[in-house]
């Protein structure tokens, strides 16, 4: 089993699986889960914005961008390294 890291740390092109969404605020966690960021979901880091942030992720058939502030609350294990 690979180490648990935050989604922010996953390299571009890699695929990870969400372990836990653990924000300081319940409503933020709820919102991320309603966007599809649920434990067990496979997520691919598609690309970073030209200025380095936000990052575009692909999950559940669509692409969603998050800032580092949000992606750092998502704990994942890396499944495929780019």
């Amino acid at each position: 089993m690979s180490d648990i890291v935050t989604l922010t740390e996953v390299e571009k092109g890699s695929v990870a699986v969400i372990v836990q969404v653990d924000g300081p605020d319940d409503s933020v966690v709820a919102r991320l889960s309603h966007l599809g960021f649920l434990p067990g979901t496979r997520i691919k880091v598609v690309r970073r914005a030209p200025l380095g942030d936000p990052t575009v992720f692909e999950l559940r058939g669509n692409q969603m961008s998050l800032r580092k502030r949000e992606s750092s609350t998502i704990k994942v294990t890396v499944e495929e390294v780019a």
């Binding site: 919102r31 669509n62 692409q63 961008s65 998050l66 502030r69």
Partner: peptide, 9 residues
């Protein structure tokens, strides 16, 4: 506390 998220259609 609204998180930032933006769909890339």
């Amino acid at each position: 506390k609204l998180p930032f998220y933006m769909e890339m259609p």
